[in-house]
Design a protein around this nucleic acid. Structure first.
Lengths: 194, 194
DNA sequence: AAAAGAGGTTAATCTAGATTACTATTTATT
DNA sequence: AATAAATAGTAATCTAGATTAACCTCTTTT
């Protein structure tokens, strides 16, 4: 069981004693998923928060017409869960599906209170993580309104160069809120200009 | 000095001892702004987190062409700050301007660590608030992609009925990511259908 | 090696929403 | 009461990006 990536990630933000580290490890689990498997499915309750050790996931919402809208990709050293479902233990609005074979470390809802009680510093850790995620999410809302699709694509490439390599283009189009045909057009325009 | 609205808001999520309540009160400040005044201006560092006691604010980004993009409105019992600027103490990307005379309770960046150290439960409180805000923000990203402007407007009216009353239409259009002319068209279509 | 599937490209046509420009209203200001 | 600002509404024209419908790779499966 290799919890090292999570521990070093956590210890970038707070420091843990040896006892705390052991207690934390006793309360989390490693789990492997195959490519295509779902960590959460829309309609089910999401009762884990997942830290990605290796692999990649997409979080998406399927709308009334069955169209997929990708909200985020998560790769190594990032989180993947339907937070809304997790915190209120209500049916999920999103699906989380592995785009590759993926290993995650799972925090379960049942163990969460106990973890926070025994290691209050974890509240701080998650507070900090959430602050960063909220900032990124708010910035994305503005970008989606203020930038045309081509600029959003360039921004995406710059910010997430590793994700573009491992994800098919049609999913990137969905993340950007455009069709795959239009993304293809943008790419050919960019090639012509160089 | 009336800190009651903040205290009762906090005590919906965690409970404070009398000492903690007094310490908290010693570290926060009430401040009044006139209509039109800025709590933060794009480019400045945001060093307060503001809890709104009365009034209303808009948070917006002015893009390269000077166009305003409204990210959120905040009214009584909600928060208003450029979180990205606050947590990293870097120049703000957003402006926060009062759309009415507004009274806020301010948490300063300088006092924040001390508050968290003396009252660790506040970490939990902010963790919970941030979770909710992040969920709302992610849902908005999906709505912006999956719903046409008319549906987004109807959703806004339903979710924030009190805000529509106190904010001019052209600002609501900006929040929805459409022009004021198009919002006007949507409204007249809705009236015809009834 | 043929067929099927998954991913990507191109081009014609269509539409939600932007832009421009002008006309009311409503609210402050003198 | 008159004038100037702000706020709203309407209508014609325009465009970013959607839709549809081809075709073109590669892989994978049989």
């Amino acid at each position: 069981m290799n919890f090292a990536p999570l521990l070093s990630y956590i210890e970038n933000h707070i420091s843990l004693t040896e006892d705390e580290r052991l207690f934390l490890q006793s309360k989390i689990k490693l789990r492997s998923y195959l490519k295509g498997q779902f960590i959460v499915q829309q309609g089910d309750v999401c009762n884990t928060t997942n830290f990605i050790v290796s692999g990649c996931t997409k979080m998406f919402h399927a709308d009334a017409e069955g169209m997929e809208h990708i909200v985020m990709f998560s790769e190594e050293n990032w989180w993947s869960s339907d937070l809304g479902s997790y915190i209120s233990q209500a049916p999920a609005d999103y699906n989380i599906q592995c785009t590759e074979p993926t290993k995650v470390i799972q925090f379960s809802y049942q163990n969460q209170e106990e973890l926070f009680e025994k290691i209050p510093k974890l509240e701080r850790f998650f507070r900090i993580i959430l602050e960063k995620a909220l900032v990124a999410s708010q910035k994305r809302i503005v970008r989606n309104f203020s930038l045309p699709a081509k600029e959003r694509y360039l921004y995406f490439k710059e910010q997430y160069p590793t994700i573009e390599q491992r994800i098919p283009q049609y999913m990137i189009a969905s993340y950007l809120g455009i069709t795959k045909e239009f993304l293809s057009k943008i790419k050919s325009q960019l090639i012509l200009k160089q």
